[in-house]
Design a protein around this nucleic acid. Structure first.
Length: 106
DNA sequence: GGAATGACTCTCA
DNA sequence: ATGAGAGCCATTC
């Protein structure tokens, strides 16, 4: 079946809501789980449209290198890093250890 | 319709 | 390990 962009949008938000506390995932993986392996950038665009006070854990999404896709000076970077640290996710040199913290769906 | 943009990822030197 | 380049795709102008 052909999934519309609306469905993709919903799928991404749904997946986002499934990320357990203390875990993170990447744009690429979300896109893949939603059924589109190469829509990583679109996931980012979706998140950029979310309000910063959204109930959804947008901050649990980072890029494939375990890094936050903002400059270290930006408010978003600081906010995201703080929220993740509150959930027990440790940063090493500005990077998350994906081996440990990445969400591994069953 | 073409060009630029972006919260990405992969490959190769 | 690190950085540059290319590929990717929806959106906006």
């Amino acid at each position: 079946m052909a999934i519309s962009k609306q469905e993709f949008h919903d799928a991404v938000l749904y997946i986002l809501g499934q990320i357990p506390k203390g875990k993170v995932t990447t744009y690429g993986k979300i896109a893949k789980m939603a059924g589109f392996p190469s829509h990583a950038r679109y996931v980012g665009k979706l998140l950029s449209q979310l309000p910063q006070d959204s109930k959804l854990p947008w901050y649990r999404v980072i890029n494939g290198q375990g890094r936050i896709s903002f400059s270290e000076d930006s408010e978003r970077y600081i906010t995201q890093k703080s929220l993740l640290e509150q959930e027990g996710i440790s940063f090493l040199n500005g990077k998350v250890n994906l081996k440990i913290h990445q969400w591994c769906p069953e």
